[in-house]
């Protein structure tokens, strides 16, 4: 499953070594086995934010941590298949859209901004349950945005601002 290691595909011409494939078998295997469990745990933290500690921000950070783990062990060439830069930008915006969308929907239903109780008519449930569901939706939005922004911060600081997608396409072809 791992692509052939070449200097060009992973290293961006020697400019960036932080996000290239590591040659240590132990770390690579442990990261590969651990990543899905970390992701499920992150989603658990997001979804159970109203029963246990955690919530959108914490879950988003853990989800970003799993992607960062994948990035520093398997390199950009492998991570790109799961989470490219385009997806990062899209997810940054989509999370905020979900958050604001739920807030504005509450205004349209006749309440204040993020007044979840008014969503009860729309979801056909009683207001306390609507409040719970609304908080869940908002936390999903927060989690998506935090995940994308954290990943983007790590990626940009480690590449130094050079977009590797442009570089690989220009240097390989």
């Amino acid at each position: 499953m791992w692509p052939e290691y070449t200097e060009q595909s992973d290293n961006f011409g020697g400019k960036n070594k932080m996000i290239r494939v590591t040659d240590d078998v132990i770390i690579k295997t442990i990261a590969r086995v651990l990543t899905p469990f970390i992701q499920v745990y992150a989603l658990y933290v997001i979804m159970h934010g109203h029963h246990s500690p955690g919530g959108g921000f914490q879950g988003g950070v853990i989800l970003a941590a799993s992607l960062i783990l994948l990035l520093i062990t398997h390199g950009w060439a492998e991570t790109k298949k799961k989470f490219s830069e385009t997806k990062t930008a899209v997810f940054c915006a989509v999370g905020v859209l979900i958050y604001t969308g739920i807030g504005v929907l509450c205004i349209f239903m006749g309440g204040n901004f993020l007044d979840y109780g008014k969503l009860g008519g729309l979801l056909m449930v009683i207001p306390p349950e609507a409040r719970s569901l609304g908080i869940l939706g908002v936390e999903i939005g927060v989690g998506i945005t935090v995940m994308a922004v954290m990943f983007s911060i790590f990626f940009d600081t480690s590449t130094g601002g050079n977009s590797p997608e442009d570089e690989t396409t220009s240097s390989l072809r």
């Binding site: 970390i38 950070v61 960062i68 783990l69």
Partner: peptide
């Protein structure tokens, strides 16, 4: 504590 262990591991690795 699980989150703590996880972030500790990834931080040390980075």
């Amino acid at each position: 504590s699980m989150v703590y262990a996880l972030l500790n591991f990834i931080g040390t690795l980075a």
